[in-house]
Design a binder for these strands. Structure first.
Lengths: 200, 200
DNA sequence: CGACACATGTAACACGTTACATGATTTG
DNA sequence: CAAATCATGTAACGTGTTACATGTGTCG
């Protein structure tokens, strides 16, 4: 939903045409994430379908300006007022992968973690270089560094977690984690009233 | 791709039927991420379409067992040997949101960050309680705590970043970040040979 | 019996991604 | 002119998500 919402938010600032939206998105997010132009038009059509924007007529230069509707403005307000919900549904590809690999008797978790550590470390280096190159006091530069800082914080956390996993793997070798298939066949029918939902 | 790959990896351990796969996925990932049963069958059909699994005949109890193919096993090996690539395409919803809000003259970034801080903090608390409840030395418990640790590391990084943003916002008030629309109309045609692609 | 979990499946949709087609415009 | 960007769009596909239909078996 990020692309959709960002484009809508940018349109809240004033009418834009498709190609312009890409520039605005790039400027504001530090040109870190490439955004295919086709997706812009795609997204605009879907926003129009949902009555959040309306397509204006092309001007003399052929630019098709899109305008946000009242419903669209409300949606932007709602978006800005609502926090990004993490955790309930947000699946983390890496966490899943490591967990599955760790519980798979046939897999070598340590190797997986090692390989990932290398990749993540290289990735962090790239981010650091990107962050330091083009130090800039312009709004664009500040926005860019903000985004890159976020990615750096994530990369650091990822590496710390990988080290942590490695440590725990030496404490608990893989065979203590490995899970056989189908340990107990589930019995059909009504269960013995699960005592879940304690938290939350 | 995480669901698809995990299910395939589990099938690499031996044939399973659909409902069983959900149990296995839940066990191995600590029951942290709910997985709709329908998606299992959906995914299995797509894996079959790609010739990575094959559908067996139903047994006496009506269970339809799915078996991994040779191509599927290769794919699992490839998956385990290849690191998760972060950064080039992986867009972070929160980073995008904050960056866009910060460059939007009409938005109150500080409020956005504050609200997110609250939500993220609460989320971390929930994770901590989940992590501590049911301390368990079983393989399931260990896998679960591994996953929860990962989410906790992420949550910590997120909160640190939000604090960092808040700090930078006091140094640079929003008007130094705000970006007007369309500051210079791009000129059509060939540009003056961009000096990009320095890094990487 | 009724509720609930077990179990399989179908259909539709959402967002994101990419490949492709088409043309105008400007610079070397 | 040729190349590259600007600019608009279309079509197809991929994964993930959800709602729904259908039926079985078990426990209270």
């Amino acid at each position: 939903m990020s692309v959709r919402q960002s484009l809508l938010a940018i349109l809240a600032q004033g009418p834009c045409y498709g190609y312009q939206l890409r520039h605005e998105f790039d400027r504001r997010t530090g040109s870190v994430w490439p955004l295919n132009v086709g997706q812009i038009y795609n997204t605009l059509e879907r926003l129009e379908r949902d009555a959040l924007v309306s397509r204006g007529t092309a001007d003399e230069r052929g630019h098709v300006y899109w305008e946000i509707t009242d419903a669209g403005s409300l949606e932007v307000e709602r978006w800005l007022a609502t926090a990004v919900e993490r955790g309930q549904a947000t699946r983390d590809e890496l966490a899943i992968k490591v967990a599955v690999a760790a519980t798979l008797p046939g897999a070598d978790v340590a190797a997986v973690v090692d390989a990932q550590r290398d990749a993540s470390s290289r990735h962090r280096d790239v981010l650091r270089r990107l962050r330091e190159s083009g130090e800039d006091e312009s709004p664009e530069g500040l926005a860019r560094s903000l985004v890159l800082d976020g990615m750096l914080f994530s990369a650091d956390a990822e590496l710390r977690w990988l080290d942590h996993v490695q440590q725990r793997l030496t404490d608990h070798p893989q065979h203590t984690l490995a899970l056989e298939l189908n340990p107990d066949r589930p019995k059909r029918g009504r269960p013995a009233k699960s005592i879940d939902a304690a938290l939350v």
